[in-house]
Simulated assay, not measured.
Amino acid sequence: MENTEILAHIELNEDDGWLIRVIDTSDKEGYICDNVNEFSFAITKLGEKHNQAINVKWSKDPDVTPRHFYEVESGIKEMEKSLNEMAQS
Rank of each mutant, 00 (worst) to 15 (best):
S26T: 12
L7Q: 12
D24I: 05
N13V: 01
E78T: 14
V72Q: 01
Q52Y: 11
H50M: 04
V22S: 00
E5M: 08
N13I: 07
E80N: 11
L19W: 05
D61S: 15
S26N: 12
I6L: 04
G17H: 07
D63P: 00
I76M: 11
H68P: 00
E71A: 10
K81M: 13
E78V: 10
S89G: 05
Q52N: 13
L19N: 04
D34Q: 10
M79I: 05
G30C: 08
S26C: 06
D16F: 11
E71D: 07
K57I: 14
A87T: 03
E48I: 09
F41M: 14
H50I: 04
E38V: 04
M1C: 10
L46T: 03
F39C: 07
A87C: 05
W58N: 05
V64S: 06
L83F: 09
G47F: 01
M79S: 11
H68L: 15
Y31W: 14
S74D: 11
T25P: 05
R21Q: 13
E38D: 14
M86R: 15
A53F: 12
E78Y: 13
I23Y: 01
Y70H: 10
A53K: 15
M86T: 10
L12I: 06
N3M: 11
D24E: 07
F39E: 06
R21V: 08
I6W: 01
D27L: 07
S59D: 12
I20A: 14
D34E: 12
M1A: 11
E2D: 15
S59Q: 04
Y31T: 04
I54G: 03
I6H: 00
D16T: 05
C33I: 02
I43T: 10
D16H: 14
Q88T: 09
H9M: 07
L12R: 09
D34C: 07
P66C: 07
D63W: 03
E73M: 08
L83A: 12
F39R: 06
K57S: 14
F69S: 15
L7K: 15
T65D: 08
D61L: 08
C33V: 06
G47Q: 02
E38R: 14
N3H: 10
T4A: 10
T44S: 13
S40P: 02
E2N: 15
G47Y: 02
R67L: 13
S59Y: 05
G47K: 06
T65S: 15
H68F: 03
I32Q: 10
D27N: 15
N35H: 07
A8P: 04
G47R: 03
M86F: 13
A8G: 05
E80M: 10
E5N: 08
V72W: 00
V56F: 03
S40I: 02
K81I: 09
W18H: 00
D63V: 08
D34Y: 09
V56G: 06
E14P: 01
M79E: 12
K60L: 06
D15P: 01
H50N: 06
I20E: 00
T65F: 09
E14H: 09
K60P: 00
K57A: 13
T4V: 15
I23T: 15
V64W: 00
E80V: 08
D34R: 10
K81F: 13
